[in-house]
């Protein structure tokens, strides 16, 4: 097996370190940001998150599947400017259908067991972001891209 590259390793480490991400969806031409709990696939090709079916973000994603998730390591201290890292995963989302839902649920709940009631409620939708690319920013200056899907 090919050794994992440095950027990929850093992205994996960052995703593993945080429970929450900022989801960016679009309401027409108006961007909209919200906080979600996420999980990721071992191959990093997809990220999972859940939302209530009556939330703005659900409506936005229903109308426009393009979305991004931002995960960062800020601690709100001056040291962040030297140490914080952020990764943006961009791609298309799709609601997880009944088929295959159990497997995705299992992965999601392994990361967030306390959200079992929320994510199993019929009023909650589970989304999967198929990641096109990751943009990793370190020390606010060092920027790398990890392309997951070509063309």
């Amino acid at each position: 097996m090919k050794a994992e590259g440095e950027v990929r390793r850093a992205v994996r480490k960052l995703l593993a370190s945080q429970p929450l991400a900022v989801l960016c969806s679009a309401d027409g031409d108006q961007p909209y940001a919200s906080l979600v709990a996420y999980a990721y696939s071992p191959d990093l090709k997809s990220l999972l998150f859940a939302t209530g079916r009556f939330a703005r973000k659900y409506e936005n994603l229903r109308d426009n599947r393009k979305a991004a998730l931002l995960v960062d390591t800020r601690t709100n201290r001056p040291v962040d400017f030297a140490e914080a890292a952020a990764v943006t995963a961009a791609g298309d989302v799709k609601e997880v259908s009944e088929r295959g839902r159990e497997a995705f649920l299992k992965r999601y709940l392994k990361r967030h067991p306390s959200l079992a009631d929320f994510v199993r409620a019929p009023s909650t939708a589970l989304f999967r972001l198929r990641v096109k690319d990751y943009v990793l920013v370190r020390t606010f200056q060092k920027v790398d891209t990890l392309v997951m899907q070509c063309c």
Binding site: P113, S114, L115
Partner: peptide, 10 residues
């Protein structure tokens, strides 16, 4: 281990 901690908080 069971995630109960977070469920109670919620």
């Amino acid at each position: 281990e069971t995630g109960l901690e977070g469920r109670i908080v919620r």
